[in-house]
């Protein structure tokens, strides 16, 4: 029970950290774009799409950690840890993609409201 609880806690952490990285980076890039006289929404979208993969890596706590665990799982037969890591990777990918989708939502809302 405790193990399951820890797993879900890590799952939520991974998801939210990835989401936060993408959202934070994009929004602050948007502020920077306004200061630099560049189009903010375009900058935000570019930043969100380019930072997605880094958000996944950062949310996993560095790429090598999880790869190491997967390697151990593969060669020592620990299937449980492989599934766990795969779930964390899915959570981070999901979070990062949701961050990108949320930034994209601003564009869609703008299209709907202003036109």
């Amino acid at each position: 029970m405790i193990l399951l609880y820890t797993f879900f806690a890590s799952f939520i952490y991974s998801f939210l950290v990835a989401l936060g990285i993408v959202l934070g980076a994009s929004v602050f890039a948007g502020i920077g774009a306004i200061i630099n006289n560049h189009p903010p929404l375009k900058t935000m979208l570019d930043m969100a799409s380019s930072i997605k993969i880094w958000a996944v890596a950062a949310a996993m706590g560095g790429t090598f950690n999880s790869l190491e665990i997967i390697e151990k799982g593969l060669f020592k037969g620990e299937l449980k840890s492989i599934i766990k890591q795969a779930a964390y990777i899915v959570a981070t990918l999901w979070g990062a993609n949701m961050g990108y989708k949320l930034i994209n939502l601003i564009k869609r809302c703008g299209d709907t409201w202003l036109k």
Binding site: G30, P39, L41, K42, C109, G110, L114
Partner: peptide, 15 residues
Amino acid sequence: VFFTLLVCYRIDDYC
């Protein structure tokens, strides 16, 4: 952050 999110679409439109 709030105002960036609020005006970013308009600024993009102007750009």
